[in-house]
Every structure is written in structure tokens, then in C-alpha cells.
Amino acid sequence: MARILLVEDNEMNRDMLSRRLARRGHEVEMAVDGPEGVVKAAAGGYDLVLMDMSLPEIDGWEATRQIRAAESGTPVPIIALTAHAMAGDREKALEAGCNDYDTKPVDLDRLLGKIQALLGAAQ
């Protein structure tokens, strides 16, 4: 069981994904845009961040960079979520400081696998 911060601006996606993750036993906190995500992540206490990349104001890449810049202790694992399954997105996400990358629409089992892998590595 993990504490997960879900940064997602689309209300339906946020609601659906958080509920499905919760059903699998995770504790999900939510942020509705980049700045909120950065603030909450900086406050700490999360095992993992799910970061939507296309956010208003500051996008997911920028938010990730800011989170990484503000971090002092062990870096929190961040999984980038993007609807643009374009070549280069993965590299761009990893470059910004994400640990992994998954495409939307979310295939829950696949995402859970990636979450599990990162949490397992962290432990």
C-alpha cells in the first residue's frame, strides 16, 4: 500500500483513477494543477507521484523539474502520464526527472505494474 499523489487537471480522469487506485488499496491525494502538485510534493510524505504532463499554467515536465529541484532527501518516484504517445515523450519525461512513463488511456494493470516496480525498487 502506498501513498500516491495524483497530479491531474481533468476532473473525470482524476476521480476515476483515484478511485480505481484506492480500490487496489492505495491512498491517493490529488492536485489539480502544476503549482499545487509542486507544493504538495514538496511537503513530502508520498511514496510516488503520478504526473499528468499536459497541465495548465506549468506543465508536468516543468512541475517535475521544480519538484526535483526542491528535493533534499531520497527522490520521490514520479511516473509521467501523457496522452501524446509520441516518440520523444518518454525521453523528454525522463530528462525532466521522471522515473517512468505511461500513456493514457491508462491500462490499470500496466500502471499498477509500473508502480509496483518503482516501489519495490525504492524499498
Partner: peptide, 21 residues
């Protein structure tokens, strides 16, 4: 396609959720 996928994601996601619930 991109615009269609967003609501469609919700449809699929919620239907999976409903199945489970």
C-alpha cells in the same frame, strides 16, 4: 482523435470501475 480519446478514456475507465464495484 485526441479530443475523442479523453472522454472515451473516461467511458472505459468508469465501465471498468463499475464492473469492479
Amino acid at each position: 482523435s485526441h479530443e475523442l480519446r479523453t472522454p472515451l478514456n473516461a467511458i472505459i475507465g468508469y465501465s471498468e470501475l463499475i464492473e469492479e464495484e
